[in-house]
Amino acid sequence: MTAPRPSIFLTGGSGFLGRRLIVDLIAAGYGVRALARSERAAATVRALGAEPVPGDLGDLPSMRDGMAGCAAAIHSAAKVEQWGRWEDFLRDTVQGTEQVIAAARAAGLPRLLHISTEAVLADGHPIVDADETRPLPPQPNGFYPRSKGLAEQRVLAANGSDLETLVVRPRFIWGKGDTTLAPKLAQAARAGWVWFGGGRHRISTCHVRNVSHGVLLALERGRAGEIYFLTDGAPVAFRDFIGRLIRSQGVEPGERTAPLWIADALAALGEAAWTLLPLRGEPPLTRSALNLFFREVTVRDDKARREIGYRPVVSVEEGLRELAPPAS
């Protein structure tokens, strides 16, 4: 009889990717302890078979105790919005990551894997066929890219003989069970979708099951101190892919187009208005979101394929078929 594998500590376990990670980690034989900052989050991870650890990213003692005896930690939690106060991004993403690192060291954890993003490369220009050697920009395009870049740097700087650290960067996580991206796209389409710049550019994507598969491979095979991009494979045409994603929500995006400079102007005006006026919510379009959606963002996963044996387990076509609404 094969001995059970040790436990993995997970942050962000109640989120879209976190839920998938719990399922796949347990299927691979690991126990999972998942940080849960609310009873609702605890109930979610418990229902998936993980052990909830009450606390949040500011609670170092709870994380340290939750990590005790674990083989590794996966840090997936962060502030993921494209708009907000810098103080919140700094606290949740940067300082939260620092706390995870400190807790890992206090617990004597041997390995820490950090979930990052291609957005760390965002500087307002297209990102074309980028690999892990591309340096972070001196002026990131928004608080989200800036905070994720700083968090990533903290993780890589922490790598050493007492704690091995590594980073994975999935691009555009999507798939069945998404409660954030696809619904937001559908909401935007209901409000009047516009294909800025025509939408004919290419983007890289990574289905949530492919992300989880790549994370498990990196956890077991990835080299300490390294970064690995994860994708679905070949880039896809933005207009075709996003159109099908929106239609999977029962909404028709339409055919309206507008020059990209109009989107740039709308994003700049919206951000200015939300900064200067007491407006609720967030601008309908931000520069950060604009540049990660309506300009090319393509990255290469050659390194992950070569070093950890990564191959997508779900094709884009399969993933889109899973999302298709049932025939009436």
Rank of each mutant, 00 (worst) to 15 (best):
G18E: 05
L230R: 09
K148D: 01
G197Q: 00
E317T: 12
A327G: 07
R244S: 13
G243A: 13
A237K: 12
K148G: 02
E318S: 08
A104M: 05
D302H: 08
S38F: 09
R200A: 14
P6A: 05
A268C: 01
P126Q: 03
A273M: 13
N159V: 07
I246P: 05
I8K: 03
V80I: 15
I74F: 09
T97W: 05
G270E: 04
L121R: 08
E318W: 02
W274Y: 14
L163P: 03
A157C: 00
E39D: 15
R111Q: 11
A304D: 08
F229E: 03
V208T: 09
L163N: 09
C70A: 14
R46D: 06
Y144D: 11
R306A: 15
G214R: 04
P312D: 04
L230Y: 05
E307G: 00
W195C: 11
W86N: 04
A258C: 10
L166V: 06
T2D: 10
E132N: 06
Q99G: 15
G177T: 05
P137W: 06
A41P: 00
Y228D: 06
S7F: 11
L90G: 02
R295W: 02
W193V: 06
G13P: 01
P235T: 10
R146G: 01
R134G: 00
R146A: 14
A72M: 07
P140K: 10
D302T: 11
P145M: 08
E282G: 11
R85Y: 07
R154L: 14
I22H: 01
A28I: 06
R256V: 06
E51R: 15
I242T: 14
R40Y: 05
L181H: 13
L156T: 08
L166Q: 01
R190D: 01
S38N: 08
L269I: 12
L277T: 04
N159G: 09
G160N: 02
R33N: 02
Q82P: 00
E152Y: 03
F196Y: 15
T97R: 09
L292T: 14
G31P: 07
R46H: 13
F16V: 07
V297Q: 14
M1N: 12
L266Y: 06
R209I: 07
I308L: 14
P135R: 03
R311Y: 08
G13M: 02
E118G: 15
L35S: 08
G55R: 09
V168Y: 10
K79A: 13
P110K: 12
P325M: 03
L10D: 03
L219F: 04
Y310L: 01
E39K: 14
A272N: 04
E118L: 13
A103Q: 07
G149A: 15
A72G: 04
I22Q: 00
P278A: 03
A289W: 12
R169K: 12
H125Q: 15
T257P: 10
F196G: 06
G199N: 07
A157M: 00
A106E: 03
T11L: 03
I74Q: 08
L156M: 09
F9P: 06
P61M: 01
G270I: 02
A289H: 11
R280H: 10
R190Q: 12
D59F: 04
G18R: 03
G55H: 01
V297Y: 12
P325W: 09
G29P: 02
G31M: 10
R146F: 01
F16K: 13
L276H: 06
